[in-house]
Each structure stands twice: as C-alpha cells, then as structure tokens.
Design a protein around this nucleic acid. Structure first.
Lengths: 243, 243
DNA sequence: GCAATTCAAATGTCAGACTTTTAATTGTCT
DNA sequence: AGACAATTAAAAGTCTGACATTTGAATTGC
C-alpha cells in the first residue's frame, strides 16, 4: 500500500482509498486488526492526525470499527445488512431530494422493483410476513391517523411484502427504494376516500400473497402504482391551482 | 445542533451525526457553506481536530465537499448519481463477500431486479443503448478474451439494458446489484461452449429490446438466469470433485 | 488460587504552530 | 483607465507533542 505525496488529493483521502482497496479486494479479512495509528503514521510517513482522518472516513462507511484500550485498534468490520440498509436509505433519500427527481420517476422505480419481489414473496412468505401486512392494513384504517403515520405504516406494509421474498439481498436493495419514497409520499394529503382505496388495494395484495398467487399480486401492485401516480397528480394540480 | 459530551460515543461521531441530520432534513440546502472549522470548533466547544474528523466522516459519504483557500470551506454537496453509484457498488460488493451470500441468492436478486427493468427498457431504449448492447455482444465473441474481460463485458451489456429504461433511479439501484455480482461471476471459468450459449441469449435479449417486445425480453432474461445458475452449479460441483 | 492493584498500549482529545491554496485587495506601470 | 504584479488574509491541510481515557493483561499481595 503506497500513496503519492505529490498528488493534489488529500493525504487522508489517499490513505483511506489505499486501505479501502485492501479491504474490498479481500486482502484484509473480516475482523483483522489494522496496524495501530502510530504504526500506520510511520508506514505512510504522515502524522497521526492524518491517519486518524483516514480511519474516520472508513468508519463512516462501516468498513472498519475501532475499539479503545490495550488490545484495541481498528478492525475490518463485517458489513451487516442493518448497516447497509441505513446507508442505502440515507443515500437514496438524498439522491431523490437533491436531484429534483419527479414523483413519477421515483414511483415508477419503486413499483417496478417491488413487482420483481411479488412473485417470490407469494411463493415464500411466512405467516409472520402475512400477519405484519394484515396488522399494518388494520392500522391504516384507524381514524385520526396522521398522514405521516399513514405513510409510515404504508412503508412497513411494503417492507413486509418485500421481506416475504426471503432474499436478504433483495430486501437490502429495496429498502432504499421504498423508504426513500416516504418524504415524497408525506407531501400528499390523504383524504378519507383515498385512504379507503389504498387500504382496499393493500388488502388485495395481501390476499394474493396469502393465496400464493404471484400473478394476482403483480396485478394488484400495478393497480396500486397507477392509483398512486393518479393521486399524486391530482394533489399537485390542486395545490398548483390554489396559488 | 447540540451534542452530549457525557455520551459514550466519540465527539466526532456525534458532531457528524448532528450535521448529517441537518443536511438530510433539508435544513441546510445544497451548496450552503458550513461554518469554518474554527467556528465549528467554538460552537461545539471541541478542538479543531475533532471537528475535522467529523467533517471527514461526512466527506466520505459525499455529504459535503471541502475547498481550500480564501473563500473555501465545507459545502453541502449535491449528491450526484455517479457518487451514489460507486458507493452502492462498494457496499453491495462487500455485503456479498462478507456475508457468505450464496451464488443462487445473489443471482436471484439480480435477475429479479433486472426483469423489472426489461419492459421499460423495451419501451424506451435509444439507438445508443442498442448499439452498446450489440457492441458488447460482439466483444464477447472475440477469441482470446479472458474470463475477467468476458465478465466485464457482461456487466456492460446488462448496464446498457438497465439504462435503457431511462429511469436514473432504477439505474442507480441496479448498479449495485449488477456490478456486485461480478466478483462472483469471475469465479466461473467460461468454456467456449458456455460463452457461445450466453452470447446467443444476449442476442435474444437485444433482439427483443430492439423489437420493443417486453414479454420476449423478460422470457430471454429468465432463460439466461436459469442457465447462469445451472452453469455455476456445474462449475462448483466440478471444483468440489477435483479436490 | 483468587482478588486487588498496577501497568502498558491503544484510541480519543486538545492546543498550537506551520504549510499550502486561493481569491480579493492593493499597488504600480503603461 | 486598464492591465499586470505583489501583498494580504482566510481557510483547509499537515505536523508535533501532550494529556485523558479506556481496557485488557500482567503483577502483586494475601
């Protein structure tokens, strides 16, 4: 691992990149301890502060974890699904909010991906997943529910649907797509009528998943996707007219 | 923005989290300049080094960028698709390599997601996408191509397919799923026979996309998915028997 | 043999200095 | 007045050395 002191990039960025490459390439196995900060400083011929900045960069990506004390140090971290989820969600949310992604584009992506899960979920869903879906549907019907709570329950419902596919890689990929939509969905005011319709569609999806009918689940999702876009359009139009 | 000095977490982690929340919540718009390191140090009542470590964490996630010089400082960064792509790929690759994800699971996720794109790509693909797909198919047929180069071309082919859907959010989500598979695919030795078959299937996909026939594209993808799993199984079995 | 103590290694934090980069300002010459 | 050069100031980047805190291991004492 070498760095180029004449490069225009920060030393800490170069060092972080060098270590990252070593980890990603598999040269450093999980739980392996990195040299101490002082040793790294000597190896790269920089100060300890610079090494520390590099290590913090890696820690921010969950590539390493640090531990204080006598036998402490920086260790190659096993990237867990939970860590990957939250990073995915943060990134996806920012991507949508900062790049003026239209509601239609985000919605299309979300439902396209979700439809990919539906047949698998119909095959493999457990009673647990079904129970979660039913519980969320019930929650969505409660009077006095705020729009935010309704959306949160919507996310939980769809998470259960996705998780039903029993493929953690799919769940990880979908986490971002589903959750990142929530801020956009929160911009919509749900009337009693539209809630009723959405709940009915959710019921249809749950029924299809319960019956292990992938085709029906897919059809129900398409219907929900169409209704969501339609709803968003009318809400945005109404808002534009109000001005 | 406040931090708790009595918490057991690192000060730099707390400060990074506080600023991250401000950015994600939208309280700090894109391109807004953060206070200088010295000012932040005073605000949070910590040393400049600690602030710097916090800022490096945020920079590692592309949440901020820094600029030296008189009018420099740290600025809220517009998260670009390219940045999000590479983060996605790193994370997905590590997730697969560190969690003993089976080839079947990863493959299932990848093709499920890709099938979600196929109908959209059939509708919207441009001549550019088609040309890329054809060019990669041609490259795959060249004799003397290494397995790594073959896999790289495979990734490029599928990227073109996904990008053909014309939905940047979908492309972003799929980047991880497709590219993260490459190290796994690289473990496979492709015989002349299997390459021929894959190239033929790629041709079928390209034909369907060209004909804007979403159903045919989907069917061809399913066939490719099945053949890929079959191929991997026989390769792994052969390798196990060899020992 | 076990418990308390001490020790040492490592990360976390701080303070202060110096270096480099960059843009704005100022000064000077034509 | 305008163009070019020199100065200046602000900011990030780096370095040094110190001290604080944590934590496991070694040592000591009983």
């Amino acid at each position: 691992m070498k760095i180029d002191p004449t490069s225009d990039k920060d030393l800490s960025a170069q060092i972080a990149a060098a270590i990252r490459d070593a980890i990603v390439s598999g040269a450093m196995p999980v739980d392996e301890r990195l040299p101490s900060e002082a040793e790294l400083a000597e190896q790269f011929d920089v100060s300890r502060s610079t090494v520390r900045e590099a290590l913090k960069r890696l820690a921010a990506q969950s590539l390493i974890r640090t531990q204080r004390g006598a036998t402490g140090g920086a260790f190659v971290n096993r990237l867990r699904y939970a860590d990957a989820y939250s990073q995915q969600i943060t990134t996806s949310t920012l991507l949508l909010s900062m790049n003026a992604v239209s509601f239609e584009t985000a919605c299309e992506a979300r439902y396209a991906l979700e439809r990919a899960c539906a047949p698998l979920s119909a095959m493999r869903r457990t009673p647990d997943h079904l129970a979660t879906m039913r519980a969320e549907i019930h929650r969505q019907g409660q009077p006095g529910l705020t729009d935010e709570a309704f959306c949160a329950s919507d996310v939980a419902f769809h998470r259960a649907l996705v998780d039903g596919a029993g493929n953690p890689v799919l769940s990880y990929q979908l986490a971002g797509a589903v959750e990142a939509m929530q801020p956009l969905m929160n911009m919509i005011t749900f009337t009693a009528r539209s809630r009723e319709r959405i709940i009915a569609l959710h019921g249809g999806i749950a029924d299809a998943i319960e019956a292990q009918d992938g085709g029906a689940a897919d059809a129900a999702l398409v219907e929900l996707a169409e209704y969501t876009v339609e709803l968003a359009q009318s809400v945005f139009e109404a808002r534009a007219a109000q001005r």
